[in-house]
């Protein structure tokens, strides 16, 4: 039994069976090889084996350009082949079309660009952030090319780096003023959250039912809380009634800034740019850093002990 298994051992490797032989006449002797089983070694088609037995004897390596498999893309042996191809494609496009007239960055068509994480996920490659930013720089430059003279190849290439439009429209919620004239804005800072009900009025502000001087002791905090209104000179046109929870006084005051700005944008969308410049739109991402194990605090290590 053992001898039988050992005699068949060479068949165990399927590759041996399916592999195209360099000497077809030997293969034919054992078993006729079907066309499907022949692995293509080069881009050229292998001619079907001639029926004429004389012509069966052929000179080896005829019509074979490469002695091994050659990938389609030269990037095959790099770390991120698909991403490299994309990079090259965009780069070539830019070098070809860089003479075309361009727009100012503010006037360029808005494209919801893919984020790095999504591109990594789509391509299945671990793309470096620095290289991604290089590609994005080229893509943004291509997007500046005047749309009327832009060749379709650029649009096709850029489409790969953009999200579908549906996801954009569903992502951006438009705040509205309700039937009572209220706009509810939400804001966060550190661990505080604020909801501000902004209505048209005469400049009265209540925070958790208290006027500003009782809600915040520091003048600076009071100013932060209504900064969205003062920076846009709208203090005399709106009333604010806010609920603030969590965190300390600074966090609560700055959460109020965001919330009031959010509500104000619902009333006057044109103010958004001014409010962004005043720092009322962007959420401040700084929070308390977590404690690490083996450390006393986030960064503080234990004191050195000799033994």
């Amino acid at each position: 039994m053992a001898s039988f298994a050992s005699s068949l051992r060479h068949i165990k490797c399927h590759r041996q069976l399916t592999k195209g032989s360099w000497q077809p006449q030997l293969a034919l002797r054992s078993r006729p090889v079907s066309k499907v089983d022949i692995r293509q070694l080069s881009t050229t088609e292998i001619t079907s084996p001639p029926t004429d037995p004389v012509s069966q004897i052929s000179i080896p390596f005829q019509n074979v350009n490469h002695a091994r498999q050659v990938p389609k893309s030269p990037s095959y042996f790099s770390r991120e082949p698909r991403f490299n191809d994309l990079h090259l494609k965009l780069f070539n496009l830019l070098s070809k079309y860089h003479d075309l007239p361009t727009l100012k960055p503010a006037d360029a068509p808005q494209i919801p660009w893919l984020k790095l994480e999504l591109v990594r996920h789509q391509l299945g490659e671990d793309i470096k952030a620095s290289q991604f930013s290089q590609v994005m720089r080229i893509a943004r430059r291509l997007n500046l090319i005047e749309p009327s003279v832009r060749p379709p190849a650029i649009d096709i290439a850029l489409r790969f780096l953009s999200r579908s439009v549906d996801s954009v429209t569903t992502f951006r919620k438009v705040k509205l003023v309700d039937k009572h004239g209220r706009a509810v804005g939400v804001g966060k800072r550190k661990s505080s959250t604020a909801r501000a009900f902004v209505v048209e009025g005469t400049g009265e502000v209540f925070i958790n039912g208290k006027p500003l001087n009782e809600a915040f002791g520091r003048i600076h905090d009071r100013e932060s809380a209504i900064w969205a209104l003062t920076s846009t000179q709208r203090m005399d046109k709106y009333n604010v009634w806010a609920i603030v929870r969590g965190g300390g006084t600074t966090g609560q005051a700055e959460a109020m800034t965001m919330a009031v700005a959010d509500g104000l944008v619902a009333h006057e969308p044109a103010l958004k740019t001014a409010l962004r410049a005043a720092g009322c739109i962007t959420r401040d991402p700084r929070t308390v850093e977590r404690k690490k194990h083996g450390q006393l605090k986030a960064r503080k290590g234990p004191a050195w002990v000799k033994r």
Binding site: N213, I226, M235
Partner: peptide, 22 residues
């Protein structure tokens, strides 16, 4: 009007000592 109204709001709707502070 803008300065007066904003300071009036900052001082808790016109508490005179708070207005002085702000």
């Amino acid at each position: 009007q803008h300065t007066v109204w904003s300071d009036w709001a900052l001082s808790g709707h016109g508490i005179v000592g708070e207005l002085e502070r702000t």
